[in-house]
Design a protein around this nucleic acid. Structure first.
Length: 648
DNA sequence: TTAGGGTTAG
């Protein structure tokens, strides 16, 4: 007889009430259970003030008095959320509260709603509700203010209101409430008022570890790592979050070495990492190619069962393995994941692309589409890279069209860069130039650099000169472009122009960036810089390299001196090539690892053509896999050939 | 019923 049929109230819920469903669904008791235990109604079925009144009326008719708090509280929850829609709905909710015998105070009731709204997708709703509470004279407590401050932190333009709440905190004598003051510091920091945040931090009579963490995190996020570190060094006690905030900051601001140094210090201090630390450390390992530590973090994640359950940990693991040259391990992690996001798919697609495995990248994309997951801009960067690295011209064009036509993604500068790269490498230099001319966004140095690269491969001096004109304006201090232009002239035997480029570099005070390569052995990173010889094993390395080059010459290796941008004779140029850092690092690896172990090298520049030929032959002569991560992609040398199939 | 750290393009 009291069946509250859901169908009677079914209307499309307005946006504002979305939070109501969250509020009630997250509570332990099913909504309206005292009345209709079997109903599946949710608050979204009762979403307007008039529907609430109808529901109220039915409750009264059903004989269940509103004073029974078991039936009143769910109704009050709904009413309170509807209170946002108008002042009259707000008054109605307050009336409901007064006639009910709810066991909590009115402030507690509203606090609960403020809490829900402040962490909802539209935190400004909490501010609307708070203004109604203030206007109606409902008393606030420290909980009320902390929820409002949280909403201010998350709403743009809410700084003035946040300041007003700060005034209220003082007025209510709550300045010794550390919790509330922490929320205030966080509010100032997240609304960009560093000065106010720091001032409050400095004068706070009592601070706890959270206070320090908030301030440190703010500095790390704004790139003020030195200030963050000062606070970190000063703080009286540190939690795992303090360490993690600093480590993540160093990773974010491209100082992965310091991140790992601090991580080791953290381990020595006996602090156990959590999953966020794992993510940050893995990201540092990815940057540095630190496979050993990356594997150790993977083991740690397995012990804590993070290797399947935590998508972010898995995504970072995939990225780490890819950037350390272990695409198969990355794929292993990817395949074992229970749940994958667009980040997981994009990372794996991009990983296959970086390793020249275009087929796998494209196949993975088809599988991703089958799951119904929508790709994003990053997914397409990976796909376009796969196409350009492997010369899949038509597929690349198709993806570029499809990203806009089928997926509504507006191409960004990275996508244009990939397309110019794709066209230029394929030798369609005129088309690439036309493509740049028609681009709706201003071409950057990556775009012109791609055209220059194509001009070098296809020996097109005119287009190379055009590209360099733009590059000299966009990125005047980058020496790499001059080197490429000089290579183009050298290829054509125009030595006078080679000289001109050299003089141009000299006039601008540019020196060729020294190439370096690193190899990690038992957790120690060994760095080799072209031409430098301060490694303790230098003498032995050169001796072994000499022997190796002799073997290579027997197999037809002729040093390709065109990559050397110096005014010297051929013999001297050969000597420069001979000291290239990747050759030294590979020989060091051969000397210090057992036969059969792959050698993994990281390089700051692109592998030069001479080293590319040499490394192919070295892999054959020594029967070793050599994996080189250069600034663009991976080259996996094995049995005399390279995974890039010489297309790079 | 309140606060703080994390993933893909380079």
């Amino acid at each position: 007889m009291t069946s509250l049929t859901v169908s009677a109230f079914q209307v499309p819920p307005p946006r504002k009430v979305a939070a109501a469903a969250v509020a009630v669904q997250s509570s332990k008791e099913p909504p309206f259970s005292p009345v209709t235990p079997s109903t599946t109604a949710t608050t979204s079925d009762f979403s307007t003030p008039s529907q609430i009144r109808q529901l109220h009326a039915r409750l009264i008719k059903s004989g269940l008095p509103l004073s029974s708090s078991a039936s009143a509280l769910p109704l009050l929850r709904v009413a309170a959320v509807c209170a946002l829609s108008s002042p009259s709905a707000f008054s109605y909710a307050r009336q409901l509260f007064r006639v009910s015998d709810a066991t909590v105070s009115e402030t507690v009731l509203w606090n609960s709603h403020l809490n829900t709204l402040s962490s909802s997708p539209s935190p400004a709703d909490a501010l609307v509700l708070f203004s109604r509470l203030l206007f109606a004279g409902v008393p606030s407590d420290s909980f009320t203010l902390s929820f409002v401050l949280k909403a201010c932190s998350r709403s743009p333009c809410a700084l003035p209101l946040g300041r007003a709440v700060h005034g209220l905190v003082e007025k209510l004598g709550l300045r010794f409430d550390v919790f509330l003051l922490n929320t205030l510091v966080h509010m100032y920091a997240s609304r960009g008022d560093t000065v106010a945040a720091r001032l409050l931090f400095d004068v706070m009579p009592v601070k706890d570890v959270v206070t320090w963490n908030i301030m440190i995190t703010h500095y790390t996020k704004s790139g003020e790592m030195v200030v963050a570190r000062q606070l970190f060094d000063l703080m009286p006690e540190r939690s795992v979050r303090s360490w993690t905030a600093m480590i993540a900051g160093y990773v974010q601001w491209k100082n992965p070495r310091e991140a790992l140094r601090l991580f080791r210090e953290m381990e020595l201090a006996g602090v156990k990492p959590n999953e966020v630390t794992v993510v940050a450390v893995l990201a540092a390992c990815a940057d540095l190619g630190e496979l050993d530590l990356g594997k150790r973090m993977h083991e740690f994640a397995k012990q804590r069962s993070l290797h399947k359950n935590n998508v972010r940990v898995c995504n970072t693991l995939i990225d780490m393995y890819i950037k350390c040259g272990c695409v198969e391990m990355a794929r292993h992690v990817f395949d074992a994941m229970d749940e994958r996001t667009v980040v997981s798919w994009s990372a794996m697609i991009g990983g296959h692309a970086m390793h020249g495995e275009a087929e796998e990248a494209l196949e993975l994309f088809s599988r991703m589409r089958e799951t119904g997951l929508e790709p994003n801009g990053v997914t397409f960067v990976g796909l376009l890279h796969a196409c350009s690295h492997m010369g899949l011209l038509e597929e690349g064009r198709q993806f570029f069209r499809s990203m806009t036509e089928d997926h509504g993604i507006v191409p960004e500068i990275e996508h244009y860069g990939c397309m110019v790269d794709l066209l230029s490498r394929a030798g369609l230099l005129e088309e690439a130039r036309e493509f740049i001319r028609k681009m709706p966004v201003k071409p950057n140095s990556v775009v012109w650099g791609a055209l220059l690269g194509g001009a070098k491969v296809h020996k097109n001096m005119k287009i190379g000169e055009e590209a360099i004109q733009h590059l000299m304006v966009l990125d005047p201090l980058n020496d790499g472009y001059y080197v490429v232009l000089s290579n183009i002239y050298a290829d054509a035997g125009q030595w006078e122009d080679v000289g001109k480029v050299r003089r141009m570099m000299k006039d601008r005070g540019l020196k060729k960036t020294p190439g370096w390569s690193t190899i990690s052995l038992d957790g120690v990173v060994h760095e080799f810089v072209a031409g430098e010889s301060d490694h303790p094993q230098t003498e032995e390395i050169y001796k072994r390299l000499d022997e190796l080059l002799e073997k290579l010459r027997c197999r037809g290796y002729i040093p390709d001196t065109s990559a050397v941008l110096l005014d010297m004779d051929e013999k001297e140029k050969e000597h420069v090539l001979y000291r290239h850092s990747e050759k030294l690092a590979v020989v060091f690896g051969l000397m210090n690892t057992p036969q059969g172990t792959p050698i993994r090298i990281m390089k700051n520049l692109r592998v030069c053509s001479d080293c590319h030929v040499a490394l192919k032959l070295i892999s054959e002569v020594t029967n070793r896999a050599i994996i080189v991560r250069d600034r663009n992609r991976f080259h996996c040398f094995s049995h005399g050939s390279c995974s890039c199939r010489d297309y790079w």
